[in-house]
Design a binder for these strands. Structure first.
Lengths: 125, 125
DNA sequence: CTATGGACTAACAATTTTGTTCGTTATTGC
DNA sequence: GCAATAACGAACAAAATTGTTAGTCCATAG
C-alpha cells in the first residue's frame, strides 16, 4: 500500500525531520480521525456508539480508522469485563488526552473564521 | 478535479457540519501546508525563500499550496513596491496568525510523544 | 434454526492528493 | 543574444486515501 521510495514518501520523511509539527499533523489528518477522537472523549467509546454517532461512516472504514489511531498510540482497546461476548471499549491514552485541548483550539479557530472569506491583515507599518 | 457527489465529498460535507474542527483540519492538512505557514511566519515569506527552505518541494507544488492557503484566507499575496519586476511577498492574515500558536501546540505535542510507541493510560478507578 | 447485534478483516474499486513535464512573462548579468 | 532568477499555470501521471463488497466469529432472542 505504501511505496517506500516514492517521492511522496520521501518528502513525507523529509518533513518529519524538519519539524515534529508535520508528524503531528499526519497523525490527525484523515477523513474521520479527529472526529472519532473527539467523540470518544465525549463518551462514545464503543464501536456501535461511534457508528450511531457518525451514521455515514461504514463499519469497515471505522475499523480502519480506529486501528490507525491505535497504532499511533492515541487510543487503546480494552476488553470490558463481565460482558459476554467480550465487549470492547476504546480509551484515550495520555497522548490522546493531551490532544483534546489542541483540537478544541483548532475547532475554535474554525468557528471564529467561518466562511473564511473576509481577509484581514494586521498592519505593521 | 472534485466530484461533487462522490461519497467522499458528501462525507466531507457531513463532517463539516458536525463540527468546525473538521473544516479546520481540512485547511491545514496536506503535504506541505503547515510547514509553509510556519516558514512564512519565520520570515521565509517569498517564493524563492520558501523554495530554498524546502528544497524538496517543486515550484509547481509550492505554487499550488500557496494558492490553496490563499483561498482559505490564511495568507495573502502582496506586491512589493519599488521592485522591478514586481516582487511578491506572502503575508499571514489574522486567520493565519491565530493559527500559529495552535500549530506550536501541535508541534509540542508531537515532540512530547515522539516515537509514540509507549502507551500510557490514566487510570480512573 | 434463523435473525440480529457487536466487532471486526481482506481485497478491490473509486476518488483525491501529490508530483512531473512543459511552458510563460519579464528583467538583470555577461 | 543567451542564460539565469522570480513567480507561476495547465495537463497529465503516479501514489495514497477513502469507500464498497463480501464474509468472519460468537451469543442471545424468538
Amino acid at each position: 500500500m505504501r511505496k517506500e521510495n516514492s517521492t511522496n514518501a520521501i518528502n513525507e520523511q523529509f518533513l518529519f525531520q524538519v519539524c515534529e509539527l508535520n508528524s503531528a499533523i499526519s497523525m490527525v489528518s484523515g477523513r474521520w480521525k479527529c472526529q472519532i477522537v473527539f467523540s470518544i472523549s465525549q463518551g462514545y467509546n464503543r464501536f456501535h456508539l461511534l457508528k450511531r454517532k457518525l451514521p455515514k461512516i461504514s463499519e469497515q472504514v471505522l475499523g480502519r480508522q480506529l486501528k490507525e489511531l491505535e497504532t499511533h498510540a492515541i487510543i487503546v482497546k480494552r476488553e470490558l469485563p463481565e460482558t459476554v461476548p467480550v465487549g470492547i471499549e476504546y480509551v484515550l491514552t495520555n497522548k490522546g488526552l493531551d490532544l483534546i485541548p489542541i483540537l478544541e483550539g483548532l475547532c475554535n479557530w474554525g468557528k471564529v473564521y467561518t466562511g473564511g472569506k473576509e481577509i484581514s491583515v494586521r498592519l505593521t507599518s
